[in-house]
Design a binder for these strands. Structure first.
Length: 494
RNA sequence: GGCAUCGUGGCCGAGUGGCUAGGCACAGCUCUGCAAAAGCUUGUACAGCGGUUCGAAUCCGCUCGAUGCCUCCA
């Protein structure tokens, strides 16, 4: 029997503002769509946080033995920097012009970067990773539908979604908690040459100016799709007209996701998504990381330590652990101090896990492992509460250390539950990686260190503390720490 | 200006009506040749003011502060 039947997962749904019991449309199957990046520059750490959060969610759903189809798109069609002006240049085209390369070279370069970085952070690839430019036909079809239903109009080769008309029969703004009347009263005057009937209207199709490189033929002439449309087209194509989970960054809630809802409801008559999930922002110096403002840090700058914000390099796993220590719906602020604290905690966790295989079993158990295991699931079932999970996992760390010191005892059965649970949650679900070195090298290294430990013990036995301390201190300087315990000396490499 | 979210001990960060979150740092003890590691113990924090309640960090109101969205952004 599948694990999900034993677990009651609750998810905070942005649409209703409440935690709801998760029930997929088709039992045992989950369709999940997450808005991916626009590939016109290097992915920064803030972007990574969102994808990492949904990776953790993907992993947990899979762990619960759901069959998950996870679709995460690549936006490879540039969108106008200023939608209203009509004169704006799209970001990919701009980058291509600045670097004197083809737009698709820009796309390729940053798609590769995106994949490389996510791999370093140990993200699983999605089931499908569709591109916007690969779905122009699907987007055009949706525009036709919306036009037919009377929720859009064509002006001068462009097609706009008619928000006011839509709002008469539907509720525009229900996701972001906005009221159309408020939005109207708050907007400035239309610019004189604007093609839109109302400022709230948004583009489904934009006519391409002659100099615009990325262009496709359509019933309305050469142009390119509006920036909300691709997600509607691709999510519908691969997940159906209504699917289970739609995720993305908080900054996409309005207008992007609001427009997606409008587009789907206008074309199919159905609300597209059951559960809307929004991951919160990563900040630095108290401000949102953002490509356009420059307040961001690139993952490679963290891994190398070459940046102004941090005192030292941090490994991808430590950064991931740091992020998992905050709930995905909370704002998280990046700082050197916080990363240093996480690094130590991460190390303690990994050291304990490394000890698991050497633990001995007893006849009785004086730790309630089943209850502990249940609390791990409870944490994740409560809207993927990874920080609470980590708190419970640190109880597991305490258990392991107590067992190692002989201060507690577990039966073989319980010990196996402890090991499996730690491995499941730390590696499979949180997606942390032990920084295992090349196994051939690490095997030899561990032989060498064992030899040194033996020599040190001999020195200690003969009270030659000068020698024993020298071994200990010099290894420590190399990042190899010796730990004396009841059962002998072990070591950890940092 | 409008809409929304948030303000927790030295730092990070959970928690939403009564019961220890957790991590890092700090202190004491145990262990140790000395350390480190680990274990044990201690910290009475919830922006301010007022209200509801037997009881509020948790609910309500106001004030102050921060952030996000309202234009491309994860």
């Amino acid at each position: 029997m599948a694990l999900y039947r034993d677990q009651q997962l609750k998810i905070y749904n942005s649409l209703t503002g409440q935690k709801e019991v998760f029930k997929p449309i088709n039992e045992g199957h989950v369709g999940m769509y997450v808005c991916g990046p626009t590939v016109y520059s290097n992915v920064h750490l803030g972007n990574c946080r969102t994808f990492m959060s949904f990776d953790m969610i993907f992993r947990y759903l899979k762990h619960l033995e759901y069959k998950v189809r996870y679709v995460r798109n690549i936006t490879d069609a540039g969108h106008l920097e200023d939608d209203d002006a009509g004169e704006g240049e799209d970001k990919i085209a701009k980058k291509a012009r600045l670097e004197q390369i083809e737009p698709m070279e820009v796309v390729q370069r940053y798609t590769v970067d995106f994949h490389n970085i996510l791999q370093k952070f140990n993200l699983l690839p999605p089931s499908i990773e569709p591109t916007a430019t690969g779905h122009i036909i699907e987007q055009i079809e949706i525009i036709k539908e919306i036009l037919e239903k009377g929720f859009a109009y064509e002006t001068n080769g462009s097609v706009y979604f008619d928000v006011l008309t839509f709002n008469k029969s539907h509720e525009y703004g229900k996701l972001s908690g906005r009221k159309l009347e408020d939005m109207i009263s708050n907007t400035r005057e239309l610019t004189a040459q604007d093609e839109k009937r109302n400022p709230q209207d948004f583009a489904l199709w934009k006519k391409a100016e002659p100099q615009h490189i990325m262009r496709w033929p359509s019933p309305w002439g050469d142009g390119f799709p509006g920036w909300h449309l691709e997600c509607t087209a691709m999510s519908t194509k691969y997940l159906g007209e209504t699917f289970d989970i739609h995720g993305g960054g908080m900054d996409l809630k309005f207008p992007h996701h609001e427009c997606e809802i409008a587009q789907s409801e206008a074309s199919t008559g159905q609300s597209p998504v059951r559960y809307w999930l929004h991951a919160n922002m990563l900040t630095m110096n108290g401000k949102k990381m953002s490509k356009s403002t420059g307040n961001n840090i690139l993952p490679n700058e963290i891994f190398s330590g070459e940046n102004d914000q941090l005192s030292k390099p941090f490994s991808p796993a430590v950064v991931r652990f740091f992020m998992m220590q905050a709930h995905y719906t909370s704002i998280l602020d990046l700082s050197d101090e916080a990363l240093l604290a996480s690094e130590k905690g991460y190390q303690r966790l990994m050291d304990a896990i490394g000890l698991m295989d050497s633990l001995v079993t007893g006849k009785t158990s004086d730790l309630n492992i089943q209850d502990w295991r249940k609390r791990c699931y409870d944490a994740m079932n409560d809207d993927f509460n990874s920080p609470v999970l980590i708190a419970v996992l640190f109880e597991g760390v305490k258990y392991i250390n107590q067992l190692r010191e002989g201060k507690a005892s577990l039966t073989e059965e319980d010990l196996n539950v402890l090991k499996k649970t730690m491995n499941d949650f730390v590696f499979d679900i949180l997606g942390l990686e032990s920084q295992a070195q090349d196994s051939a090298i690490s095997e030899k290294l561990s032989g060498v260190v064992s030899l040194l430990i033996q020599m040190r013990n001999e020195a200690r036995a003969s009270k030659d503390f000068a020698t024993s301390d020298k071994i200990r201190d010099e290894l420590s300087a190399m990042g190899i720490q010796l730990m004396d315990g009841k059962e002998g000396t072990t070591f950890s490499i940092s």
